[in-house]
Computed example of a mutant assay.
Amino acid sequence: MSSKYTAGPTETERCIESLLAVFQRYAGRDGNASSLSKKEFVTFMNTELASFSKNQKDPGVLDRMMKKLDLDCDGQLDFGEFLNLIGGLAQACHVQVMSSPTSGGPKKP
């Protein structure tokens, strides 16, 4: 996924490659490499997003997240549904950073 305009992958391309690699690391453990089962999703959350998972007081939060993310109600999260999770978390982080009194608003690259 390298751009023809740069010597190597751009930062954004590396981020996409990383997301693909993480999804593939957890998907397929149960035989279907194109989606995350509920068990694979819980393993992903407890490993990759452990600070979120471990700090939840409600034991049903991961079940509800899985149900909400599973748009086609097939009991699996495909890559698009997985990206909805990642995008939502990134958006929440962005809002938090922008509302921080020390953020000073958006930074110029």
Rank of each mutant, 00 (worst) to 15 (best):
K108Y: 08
R64F: 02
S34L: 05
T102I: 12
D72L: 00
L77Q: 09
F82P: 02
S35V: 03
I16P: 06
S99H: 10
D70I: 03
E13W: 05
M66W: 10
I86E: 03
D63F: 02
N55G: 02
L62C: 08
T6C: 07
R25V: 03
V97K: 13
E17S: 12
R25M: 05
E81D: 10
E13Y: 05
A21S: 11
G28D: 09
L19C: 08
Q56S: 14
K38V: 00
D74F: 03
F52S: 00
I16K: 07
S34F: 01
Q24W: 04
I86Y: 00
A21W: 04
G31Q: 07
V61T: 14
T6D: 05
K57C: 01
G88C: 08
R29S: 09
G87D: 11
P109A: 00
F44K: 03
A90Y: 10
A7L: 12
Y5R: 11
Q91R: 13
P101M: 02
L49M: 15
L77P: 08
Q24I: 00
G8W: 02
A50S: 14
G105Y: 05
S99Y: 01
M66N: 09
V61K: 15
V22F: 02
G105E: 04
K38W: 04
C73N: 15
L19H: 04
P9E: 12
L19A: 11
D63V: 06
L69S: 12
K4R: 13
G75E: 10
V22C: 06
A50K: 14
G28T: 05
Q91Y: 14
S3K: 07
K67N: 08
S37D: 07
M66K: 11
D78R: 06
